[in-house]
Design a protein around this nucleic acid. Structure first.
Lengths: 150, 150
DNA sequence: AATCATCACGTAATAACGTAATAAAAAGCG
DNA sequence: CGCTTTTTATTACGTTATTACGTGATGATT
């Protein structure tokens, strides 16, 4: 089986999982939202909001930025997509929702390439630090810039 | 001694430390750069770049955004200031440069208030995760959103 | 069915954030 | 001093994100 077919399969898996997750939580994965999610899945990496505007527009119809931002907000709330604040871009979030793990997005400072890793160890250490800081809860997402080992 | 006086003293300490650090590394803490740093110190929290433009401008002279950004770039390179990507804002970085500790900026999701904590434990856990991700080095700064206790 | 509330989306305008290009001034250095 | 490098000023422009307002769809309640 080709890698392309594998990727295609992976794609469908993600879409199906997203669909299930929404169904289970009474969230509406509307056509626009699904198209945005699918585009992010297919891209395989971070994509800017205005890139999404371009990619999901055609000659007949041009989407407005706010339409994309609304879809992204929904997907972020659902935990399906993560915003890379340092890059002004958006990327799908892999992984089953493991409440005890920190989802770390490592971002290559040069290329913007990302790798997602889940770590309960980091989660635990951060929780401890948060307590010191007087924080009672922390986001399960974080973003760390670094240098990829080519 | 009043808390105000204490804060004033703390302010002067930070300024002096910044000055020393620049002197030791042959960096030039020019008037603009110092004014930007001082403004961040006095604010006691994160400030946006355009806020700084306003605060450091007066009737006679209005600074251009690019002036502020350059000063901020300098201060960030010097390790004196940290950019909060999630907030599009900038905040002074406390603390002696401990190479083995991760500098974590906890950001209150509601108010934007920040607390900085250094943790070697988090640093170690993140390094381990980075290795898994195929990253050979990571930034000593990170930003975590959360909810402040109280 | 009629009413009401909520949500999703369209459209337009604009705010907020950041950078490029160019020139002038200031600082370091032989 | 004269030369090079760094820093700053000014203007314009590019990118990212939000606000405001209207409309239609959906769904629950009476």
């Amino acid at each position: 089986m080709s890698t392309k077919a594998l990727r295609k399969e992976e794609e469908e898996n993600l879409l199906r999982r997203a669909d299930d997750l929404c169904r289970q939580n009474n969230l509406r994965l509307t056509p626009i939202r699904e198209r945005v999610y699918r585009e992010l899945v297919q891209s395989g990496g971070p994509v800017g909001a205005y890139d999404l505007v371009d990619r999901l527009s055609n000659e007949k119809k041009r989407l407005a930025p706010v339409t994309i931002y609304r879809a992204l907000d929904f997907l972020r709330d659902a935990g399906l997509v993560h915003r890379l604040a340092t890059q002004n871009s958006y990327v799908i979030s892999h992984g089953q929702p493991d409440m005890n793990a920190m989802k770390i997005m490592f971002v290559d400072a040069k290329t913007g390439e990302t790798v997602e890793v889940h770590s309960t160890e980091v989660a635990e250490a951060v929780r401890k630090a948060a307590e010191q800081a007087g924080f009672k809860s922390v986001s399960p997402f974080m973003e760390v810039e670094g240098e990829i080992a080519q």
